[in-house]
Design a protein around this nucleic acid. Structure first.
Lengths: 336, 336
DNA sequence: TTGAAAGCGCTACCAT
DNA sequence: ATGGTAGCGCTTTCAA
């Protein structure tokens, strides 16, 4: 036997309508009766039945969040940002993890979609086209966080072009001329493309023709980092490497150690992401830190404002955080 | 304009009741009409309105999952286990992250509770008493995964007593006599207590009176590991340390490196948890790996069966995984 | 096998 | 400021 608004109304000598207004803070009501009702609700152990509310309301305040179940240690930070903002603006988050299995993805998405959502936010997901089709077919707002998809969906992310460009500049200024970019190089994710372009253009602006071999890797995994060292062999043909994700860079660092290389003397590393993982290595990783919390907050506010067009792209800042993985090889006469 | 069951019924020349029965696979219906209805639903782009369904159903198939928002890298694995099982048994998961702020916790719990849940699973959460009170006040099933609470809630976890006991045995067999236990030592979480008891008893069984100073630490954080080394100073008064969580052990390892100690020669480390993090260090951490996926699966199956009593405790197995952080100090004449 | 209709708990509109 | 009430979309008896 659950307590309903009606029960409260009876006990308070009011109508369900009034109780509803009071409990949701909508419309006009007497402050004193309001307090009485709230006390009553509390003491009777009332819980709102959100399903009933959803059913009778047009406007939803629920935002679905799709998170890749594969270990992405920054998803937490984005969610944290989203949650604090959602709490503040009185929105509710429903988080769903998506596996790599497409059928399961569709089922997850459908179960989300069956809940009258205001919007769905996708965190760092390269979503499958068939799943995306399902999503686009509905009228919930969509947003991609920390990843730019095709311009069918608005997105919030770092400026990946600039980020890599800046890293190259930084490495160049430290005397590096032979630089590698390690990580997912599939053409499809726009992010990988932008990074590649930033990489190539920055080198070119410094008068360096990039070596296509130095853009290497398939996935953004630890193994990719480890493999990279084995692939290129010792001595490495480059003096610095950019890791497309912290976990890759840790792979690079461990791979280098396993090959008896010294960091940063034999290999400088700059990593993209800058999560807490960077603090766990020795030396600590030099990184360009993305502002994941801010991404999360902006996701909520912009969804709340409902001014997003499919082409909207919002960039958040990145910060160069110095660790101990960049050396200056100038003295080694590496200049060209 | 959303498509409802009624729309389908009209188009199919049936009643909403029949459509409902077909789409939910309940009750009797004609196989041919069923196929027709399903096709129709598909082509019309029908989405079940779960809120409406929840409202008119007594039995819920939704399980709420409370996850600490603080980075616990094994929560992912538990959730993965839960999700695969939930998918298989046709349950739905709603994940909510809880912050440390109590008010926010209550709000999160309430918003979960307002959704007609079958159960709530708490992952590795030492829940606040006031929040717990709210939870116990309802009639949703509760379960604690990877953490034992007071016996008011059933739980699934590793046998923490045995785990630490086994580690001590292992270290003893490798010649260690002075062993430390680093990590949360607050008396309240039962887990910490069990580990402490396993630690003390195992030592005692080997004829060693434990040194209370060697049980050290307040929180299960990276910093605790780092601080431990500073706290005890060099040379360390013990030859081996047990880290209560991977992140602590990494702290120990880095702290030791920062103090110019060699691992494992100057300090052996065994870590509890055994997540992927253990692979990222050099040397790789020796660990007792918990079976998080299994915990997640068991959580779902046992909730589905509804046979849990508040005192139920389910243990999952742990495995000793050899890394490179344990040495045998026998030759140093450490025997007593 | 199928249909009619009540009702889940809440909100919103229109009155008062 | 408050009340009456229709109705959100679905499930579920009970009857046909």
């Amino acid at each position: 036997m659950t307590i309903t608004i009606k029960d409260i109304a009876n006990k308070a000598g009011l109508s369900p309508a009034s109780v509803s207004r009071i409990l949701t803070n909508r419309g006009r009501f007497n402050a004193e009766t309001a307090q009485k009702v709230r006390d009553l609700a509390e003491s009777m152990g009332y819980f709102k039945n959100q399903s009933a509310a959803d059913l009778s309301q047009k406007e939803s305040r629920v935002i679905g969040v799709l998170v890749p179940s594969s270990h992405t240690n920054f998803a937490d930070e984005i969610i944290k940002g989203m949650q604090s903002k959602a709490y503040e603006l009185n929105y509710e988050l429903i988080v769903a993890f998506v596996e790599s299995d497409i059928q399961q993805q569709i089922q997850t998405v459908k179960s989300l979609l069956s809940r009258n959502l205001l919007a769905i936010a996708m965190l760092a997901i390269d979503i499958d086209d068939t799943v995306l089709a399902v999503l686009l077919d509905t009228n919930v707002q969509l947003i991609s966080v920390s990843n730019q998809l095709n311009n069918k969906i608005p997105s919030i992310s770092s400026n990946n072009y600039d980020t890599v460009h800046d890293i190259v500049d930084y490495l160049y200024d430290n005397g590096h001329r032979d630089i590698a970019l390690i990580g997912s190089s599939r053409p499809e994710p726009i992010v990988a493309n932008l990074r590649r372009q930033g990489f190539i253009n920055a080198l070119s602006e410094h008068g360096i023709t990039y070596n296509p071999d130095f853009i290497w890797g398939v996935e953004n995994t630890y193994q990719t980092g480890l493999d990279a060292i084995k692939h290129f062999g010792v001595p490495l043909p480059f003096s610095a490497a950019i890791g497309s994700a912290d976990i890759i860079s840790i792979g690079l660092l461990n791979g280098a150690k396993d090959a008896q290389l010294s960091i940063p003397e034999d290999l400088s590393i700059v990593t993209i992401d800058g999560t807490d993982l960077t603090q766990l290595t020795r030396p600590i990783l030099t990184s360009t830190k993305q502002n994941f919390q801010l991404m999360g907050q902006l996701a909520i506010t912009s969804l709340a404002e409902k001014k997003l067009s499919p082409h909207t792209i919002i960039f958040t800042d990145t910060t160069l955080v110095l660790g101990g993985t960049v050396a200056s090889p100038l003295q080694r006469g590496k200049e060209n």
